[in-house]
């Protein structure tokens, strides 16, 4: 009986809620009027033109940046309580922000994540390494890759290693920033399959992309961002001519696939 009650409470807490959030690096706000709710186990794509504040929003959710107005809550905790929310969120940064011009191995990359979570000054042991290898296998990579140089992997493999690093800490929420940049279609599909599996295990996923097309058949909702939320909801409700013009400042043709999904054709906006 008690258990049933807890479960009910669990369901009532949303994964991420944002109320009236505003943020800017300088005077000018980069994000404003950001109000939304993401429920547990939802798979949400955040999209919008370059510089629209997508990465900034992820950093606000992570508590790396603090809003100057409003509040964001992650699993009920304010993002001000960083040590509480840190253990709930796995993050995969934009690959372009990573520098691997040195022989860092896949092992090092994954163990840095596990080590940071454990306390960066504490030594990691065999058990941690076992966990790291499990994470690598869970993203469909071969165990052999463990001792290879990160820089020598393909773009898709690198993304999956970064995903493994995020998953190794067993997060409840997963934030991915442009995971498909420089990734070929087969790897992209592998990553998507993996994310679908994770959702079945109860993970909430937020994914930033500049092209939503590969995701349309997988996601629950789209958030269209242009410094504010232009639209947030089911893909077909969001991907309308009016919304796309307001986000991109130009009309984007929409084609409908056999399954009836609306696909924006961005070719002119994204080179």
């Amino acid at each position: 009986m008690v258990k049933g009650k807890n479960e009910k409470e669990d369901i009532e807490i949303d994964a991420i809620t944002s109320k009236g959030v505003e943020f800017g690096y300088g005077e000018q706000p980069v994000l404003f009027d950001i109000t939304f709710t993401i429920k547990k186990e939802e798979f949400v794509a955040i999209t919008g033109p370059n510089g629209s504040g997508k990465t900034t929003l992820l950093k606000l959710i992570l508590g790396i940046l603090q809003p100057r107005k409003g509040e964001i809550r992650v699993m009920g905790y304010s993002t001000k309580e960083r040590d509480k929310i840190m253990n709930l969120i796995g993050f995969m940064p934009q690959k372009e922000h990573i520098s691997s011009n040195f022989p860092i191995l896949v092992r090092d990359v994954v163990m840095l994540g596990l080590g940071a979570r454990k306390g960066i000054m504490k030594p990691t042991g065999k058990a941690d390494e076992e966990e790291g290898i499990q994470a690598i296998k869970s993203v469909g990579l071969d165990e052999e890759i463990w001792m290879e140089k990160f820089a020598e992997l393909s773009g898709g493999q690198q993304q999956r290693v970064l995903l493994a690093r995020a998953l190794a800490i067993k997060p409840e929420i997963l934030l991915l920033d442009e995971p498909f940049n420089g990734v070929d279609i087969p790897s992209q599909n592998k990553i998507l399959d993996l994310i679908s599996d994770l959702r079945k295990k109860g993970v909430t996923v937020l994914l930033v992309v500049h092209n939503v097309n590969p995701l349309l058949h997988h996601i629950d909702k789209i958030m269209l961002l242009k410094n504010r939320i232009v639209a947030f909801g089911k893909p077909d409700e969001v991907l309308t001519d009016k919304n796309l013009i307001s986000a991109y400042g130009a009309s984007i043709p929409i084609i409908y696939c056999e399954e009836g999904y609306a696909h924006p054709v961005y070719s002119d906006i994204h080179g």
Binding site: I89, F91, P93, Q94, S99, L112, R165
Partner: peptide, 9 residues
């Protein structure tokens, strides 16, 4: 390697 990731972790 990844200062953004380091901060996030």
């Amino acid at each position: 390697f990844d200062s953004e990731g380091a901060t996030a972790f």
